[in-house]
Design a protein around this nucleic acid. Sequence first.
DNA 1: CCCTTTTGTCACAAGTTTTTCACACTTTGA
DNA 2: TCAAAGTGTGAAAAACTTGTGACAAAAGGG
Lengths: 232, 232
Amino acid sequence: MDDHQEIRGPLATYLGRYGLDVSTAADAEGVRALLAQQCFDLIVLDVMLPGEDGLSLCRYIYEHLKIPVILLSAMAEPADRIAGLELGADDYVTKPFDPRELVARIKTVLRRLEGAAPAAPAAGNGGYSFDAWILDTSRRELRHCDGRTVELSPVEYRLLHVLVEHPNTVLNRERLLDLTTRDEATVFDRSIDTQVSRLRKKLGDDARRPRLLRTAWGDGYLLAAEVRRLPI
Amino acid sequence: MDDHQEIRGPLATYLGRYGLDVSTAADAEGVRALLAQQCFDLIVLDVMLPGEDGLSLCRYIYEHLKIPVILLSAMAEPADRIAGLELGADDYVTKPFDPRELVARIKTVLRRLEGAAPAAPAAGNGGYSFDAWILDTSRRELRHCDGRTVELSPVEYRLLHVLVEHPNTVLNRERLLDLTTRDEATVFDRSIDTQVSRLRKKLGDDARRPRLLRTAWGDGYLLAAEVRRLPI
DNA sequence: CCCTTTTGTCACAAGTTTTTCACACTTTGA
DNA sequence: TCAAAGTGTGAAAAACTTGTGACAAAAGGG
């Protein structure tokens, strides 16, 4: 996750040789896209990214995902390093550096984390990520991987929650209504359509050609996405 | 725990000023003596000690005591740092260094540990920090990071305390009432709304678009912030 | 290709829920 | 006992949600 291909490629290869499973991205947006798709144990992040600042991304990761971050930077003053560490980074390595030292520092961070492993299950159960979205079930909000959050009404939230718990599965209207409406108020089928429409709009899904919240003609709807449960 | 009195003294004083409780020792034997007497959260260790090597002491501490260690050393080659980290050190700082960076690294190591550990609940009565605020539980007051303090009424204080103990979690009115009212006086739900409104005003939160004390429509309220327990 | 069925969307209104306020009642401390 | 601060209450206002019906668009079947 460095901004220079010349560094990023070889570094990834090098880390891979140490038994680490590595993915790389060119900029903050790429990192967020990766984060939405899979879980990571640790993130190595260059402070100088094109576009969004590495530091702001670091803060986001610390606050929302709790994945350890090691910051990389060229010519960092002590003040820069302090700022990075106080933002939630777990280490700060200044370029140029010996790649073996980076490996050692990665392992040190991971070692500490494993040692103190049993993460408290108490505070909320994290959430789900799918496509470029994160449904944060403890905060009850929907966040895009670019950082913006989208407000969801109670029914929209419940609807998305149901969909996300049954991804790639057709859910008929009756089922969706049962799972969505709180009291057994008799509502007619079509109200779900409206809610789907509203949700699609918030997800940026085009109804003509929906990518995520697809229509199962004559049957119901389904969320077409790979959903991951997030720890936290 | 540095071998030079000229450094050790001032450094201890400096660290003390950051709210850290510090003991010092001149050599490995002194460290071992201290370790036998009391518990430490973290040890800062100079590699070049008279007598027993700092590295061997570090290994001992890692293997037997599991107390985090930050190694200090003058003119360390990457190979030295790697060796130190692989021996179980949690960080390795090369002299000369900015003392503020050392403080930042100490806090980072401690934070990493706290986050993973099951966090002792009762323990300290220090306080909590969230957003730009500090809730001082020993003084029962709310301070902004710009220095000004805000007076809280008893109920406001209890409400904020509850929220701060369950951050990023939706708490319904019933729950908030249970945790907020002292005696089981039957109070109706809506009184919480009033208190929330009053608290929001003091936190400078706009009710139209609350940033911190958010409304979970149809459910309750939640504090949307990263909360940290403060030591002291 | 046309007709029927199903779905998408919109504005609107009804219904809920929340916010805020003044006021009365209670507690606290001098 | 009195004043001052705190707190619950009810009501009114504001904000927001959500079902509905109408109509447009799309899909499927013959």
